[in-house]
């Protein structure tokens, strides 16, 4: 039975919130590592759109969502390698290169789509879900939160992995030093360029995976500009999170939840202008910024290319 506040409707809303949050979570976690290492990765939107395009093409022709995710992540890594070469190795301006990559890749993927799919607009079947035993049977919440594609659970698990990496591994400590005091890291005998390059490549992989998820699971298709600014939201979430992965997860869920709230308000016939309702997710992010972002401390060397011996 349908209707506002019905189980089906509430489950669809919550399911949609999670689906909207996952690309932001993946992109935000990736961007967070890049920023920790001192690289402001503005090109993440370009990495996402590349991942979305390649992920869709791969899944469409192979019939495998997993191959799509893998290809999408690889595409993101490829773009990130270019970013690392230009910004980390050569030391060009990170913002300029990031914007150029984003604009260029949006145009390129739109062009490729035009030649390949603009007459057919192929779409993928619904993604297979992996229900979590027992939890998936809970009314409303079960079908909304515990009946997703396996990649969703892996994305959430990545939060724990990232916490472990940052707190318990030498690589995590190196990342922090590469962003705060790269010269000190260099003196300690750790290669700053290599550390930053690894961080940027990881960002590309996560952003590409996020793009592939957005296209293959979120939309089930690829169209030009499909990421619609999700990469930039990932940057915002990474900055708000103050280096803590769990806050990226919270921010992504708040944003996804607010998107679903806007739909709920409209379906409920809330008689206020649509524009006001549509502001809700962005107001929530700004509120988070005011409440939690004041004490945010970005790495001291963020955005500054490292050059040994330079003052």
């Amino acid at each position: 039975m349908g209707g506002f506040a019905s189980d089906t409707f509430l489950a669809a809303l919550l399911f949609g919130a999670v689906t909207a949050a996952i690309p932001l979570l993946l992109a935000g976690l990736g961007e967070q590592m890049s920023e920790k290492a001192g690289v402001l990765n503005i090109g993440i939107e370009g990495m996402m759109i590349t991942g979305a395009y390649l992920g869709f093409v791969s899944a469409y022709y192979s019939g495998s969502f997993w191959l799509g995710f893998l290809t999408g992540a690889a595409g993101g890594v490829a773009v990130a390698a270019l970013m690392a070469l230009l910004c980390v190795r050569i030391g060009l301006n990170q913002i300029v290169i990031g914007i150029a990559l984003t604009l260029g890749l949006e145009g390129l993927t739109a062009l490729l789509h035009h030649f390949q799919f603009s007459r057919s607009y192929p779409r993928l079947p619904a993604a297979e879900v992996t229900p979590i035993p027992l939890l998936a049977d809970i009314p409303v919440l079960g079908s909304a939160l515990f009946r997703h594609h396996l990649i969703v659970y892996l994305a959430v698990a990545m939060v724990v992995v990232m916490i472990w990496v940052y707190r318990r591994t030498q690589f995590g400590i190196n990342l922090q030093a590469a962003g705060d005091k790269p010269a000190a890291l260099d003196v300690a005998g750790i290669d700053v360029i290599r550390t930053r390059t690894a961080a940027v490549l990881f960002t590309g992989g996560m952003a590409g995976l996020g793009g592939a998820y957005l296209a293959n699971v979120g939309a089930g298709l690829f169209i030009p500009f499909i990421t619609n600014g999700a990469g930039f939201l990932g940057i915002v979430l990474a900055m708000l999170a103050r280096g803590q992965p769990v806050w990226v997860l919270v921010g992504a869920l708040v944003f996804g939840g607010c998107l679903s709230m806007t739909t709920a308000a409209q379906v409920a016939g809330v008689n206020i202008p649509t524009d006001v309702i549509q502001m809700l997710p962005f107001l929530a992010v700004m509120a988070m910024l005011v409440l939690f972002g004041r004490r945010a401390s970005l790495p001291a060397a963020l955005g500054i290319p490292y050059e040994r011996g330079a003052r």
Partner: peptide, 23 residues
């Protein structure tokens, strides 16, 4: 969303909610 002309994922998400409401 505001000018969400290329937001295919948003189109799918919102439409699924409207279908969930009974349409």
């Amino acid at each position: 969303g505001p000018a969400a002309y290329s937001d295919a994922a948003g189109g799918r998400r919102v439409t699924e909610s409207v279908i969930g409401a009974g349409a």
